[in-house]
Amino acid sequence: MSEGPGISPAATMRAMVTGDRDRWVKLLMFCCASVSFLGVLLIFLFIFRESLPAITKVGIPKLFLSTDWRPASGHYGMLAFTFGTLFTTVAAMIIAAPLGIGAAVFIDQVAPEKVGRGVRRVIELLAGIPSVVIGWFALTLLVPFIRSVTGSSGFGMLAASLVLVVMSLPTITTLSAESLRAVPVELKEASAAMGATRWQSIYKILMPSAREGLIIAVVLGMGRAIGETMAVQMVIGNASQATASLLQPGSTLTTRIVQDMGEASGVFRSALFAQALMLLLLSVFLIISIRLISRERKHA
C-alpha cells in the first residue's frame, strides 16, 4: 500500500524536477477519493451480502414488515425497531428542531456578540461529549427522574428521545446559525426600514429566507439521531415490542444490533445485518432529501 502501482520514487523525483507536480497531486487526490468511495461501496456490499441469508430464508415481508421479533424461535421481524428508530427520532426532532433553531436565532440575531459566541462554544462542546457519557448521565439522572414523575420504570421511548434531543441539538443549532448568518444583511435592513420590529424581521424575513438551510439542519440532526446507539441503548429499555407509548421500553435498529450481536449466529446474525441494511436505507433516504432541498434552493 505504501507505493502506488507503478510509481517508482525515481519517477516521482523526475516528475517533481520537471515541474510535473500537478499530475502527481491529481493522482494522489484521485487515489484518496477512490479509497473513500470503494470503502463505502464495500461496506454496502458487505452488509447486503451478510443480510442475504435472512432475506432469502425469512423473506422480505416477515423480515422487514413484521414486528414479531423472537429470534430464539425463528421470528426475525424488525418493524418494531424500525418504528422505534423513526418514533424516537421524530419525537426528538419535535423538541430539538424548535429548540435548536431558537438557539440559533438567539446566537445569531438576539444575543450580544460575546454572549452569542459563548453560547455557541458551549453547544459545540456538547457535540464533543462522547455518547456513552451522555448515556450514563441520562441513566443516572434522567431515567430516575422520569421514573419518579411518571411511576413507570423510567426506561423507554421518552428517555431515548430526550437523549436524542441532546445528541442532535449541536448539529441543528450550529447549522441553523450558519444558514441564518448567510441571509444577506440587506434583507434584514430592508425589513427594519419598513418599520418591522426585530421579531417581525426574524419571523417574516430571516427565517423564510433561511428556510432550506434550516430544513437541512434538521435533516442532518435526524441523521445524527437515527445513527445514535450507545446513549440510547442505555436508557431505552431494549424491549422487543413495538410501542408508541413514551413510557414503554422499546428498541431502535441500532440498539437491537448492539444488544444482540454478541451471541447471534446464522440467520439471527444475518437478520441483524438486515437491520443494518435498513439503517443504511434510512440514511440514503435522508441524503437524497437533502439533495432535493438543496436543488430547490439553487433554482429559487
Binding site: 444577506p184 434583507l187 435592513e189 430592508a190 426600514a193 419598513m194 418599520g195 418591522a196 429559487a300
Partner: peptide, 20 residues
C-alpha cells in the same frame, strides 16, 4: 423608531427585494 421608519422609508444601494 418603528413608527418613524414607516414615515421615513428607505431605498438601498443594492436592490434588496425579499425572497417572496
Amino acid at each position: 423608531t418603528i413608527a418613524l421608519r414607516r414615515r421615513v422609508g428607505m431605498v438601498f444601494q443594492r436592490p434588496n427585494p425579499f425572497p417572496k
